[in-house]
Design a protein around this nucleic acid. Sequence first.
DNA 1: CAGTGGTCTAGACCACAGT
DNA 2: CTGTGGTCTAGACCACTGG
Lengths: 248, 248
Amino acid sequence: MIQNKYYEIYLRLKQKITEGIYKKAELLPSENTLAKEYDVSRETIRKALDYLSQDGLIQKKQGKGSIVLDAQLFNFPISGLTSFKELADAQQMDAQTILLSNQRVTVDGQLQKKVPWSLGSDLILTERIRKIDEQKVIFDTDYLDPKITGDIPKERLEDSLYDYLENDLQLPIAFANKEISVESVTDKDRANLDLRDEDNHLVVIRSAVYLEDARNFQFSESRHRVDRFRFIDFSRRKHTLSEHDGFR
Amino acid sequence: MIQNKYYEIYLRLKQKITEGIYKKAELLPSENTLAKEYDVSRETIRKALDYLSQDGLIQKKQGKGSIVLDAQLFNFPISGLTSFKELADAQQMDAQTILLSNQRVTVDGQLQKKVPWSLGSDLILTERIRKIDEQKVIFDTDYLDPKITGDIPKERLEDSLYDYLENDLQLPIAFANKEISVESVTDKDRANLDLRDEDNHLVVIRSAVYLEDARNFQFSESRHRVDRFRFIDFSRRKHTLSEHDGFR
DNA sequence: CAGTGGTCTAGACCACAGT
DNA sequence: CTGTGGTCTAGACCACTGG
């Protein structure tokens, strides 16, 4: 099934890099060469290369070319917007999910601290515990907007919520704001997770998730035992170019 | 000073969004309208909009338009590649730096666990403590390649290392790999930081930093007291589109 | 100098949303 | 149907790298 040209070319180049056909620290063929090779315009090649660059797979240098980077990243794509199930699959972890609750609740003053939705509105609350290597190390709480998602079948929560939302409901999940911090262990954490005596903190990831039309349909809180948490990221330096430049 | 058209347009649109001229949840003018307004081609407008999209300021929707997002993000640009000084300035924090050491060392077996540079090579080791609100809460260790940076003047380490590297040395810092994890407090941490009794973990950020020509010139380790750590991120969902598609 | 990537254009056609 | 954003093209000129 043919997608966009630039996306196909992106995938093919990516594959050639991971297979070592294009070697680390060497240069890719020039944009003009690639344009001829794939029989597309140079702009289309450039779009594919932009994707590779955003992935941290190449570094472009004017006058020189595109250097293939030595990235261990794609082994561990934790950055971005990825579900637990996808991560577990990608990492081939021994992972299980225990569904604690899945119910409708009404937003009251208490809840509104966690979910900035209007008072009195209906929402779905689910609580899940994630077991990795037979240890309960992650506590996930999700708040969903039932006007968008409807009720969630129990079986799908035990498998993959995102798979249900995207494939069954065809909801186009687009972006999220995330916050990572460290918080003190609560009694509820201690009751539900396998914590060690020295664990008095958890890593907490809170996120607000949005659809393509920018509607916010989910909030989630994910509490991780500190020794099982790792976040890997590739980032490019933003050269602010002095905000003072430019017309105004 | 005029830069690129697309970058200027990006800045102007960004400004109009932050000033509320383009309001949250409303649509930007269409790409064709903007192209006429700025007297550029549509592709140039699209490039500016791509930047806004990557910043999490707008969400594009085919057939509809570009929705202005309600992003608190730019208040807190922790994601990306940002130096402590830049952060402190942006946040208007009461911050100080204490320089502990700044010396040349030779890579031995011990060091090589932290820095994957070849045995016997020379490097610069600097240790700095960051005080925020009069409390010593961050311990930074930096390993630099003296073949690239030379020795670092003491005064610049107490101010901003990145400012020195980029402006004085004109080194083009391009990208970094980062890892965030949580580790146990060591005796050295306890000796140098203002830790509370209940602090038995620290957030540790390790990063490898690269220049535009993809040379790795720096490794750094930044150890944060857990209550002073926060990471905010905007991420877009990557629609994998099944890796199995496409020609091969 | 020749070759590289960076920017920009004018125009084309397509896919999608809303009327 | 009209207008929106998404893709793609062929060609131009510029800025940078390296011999």
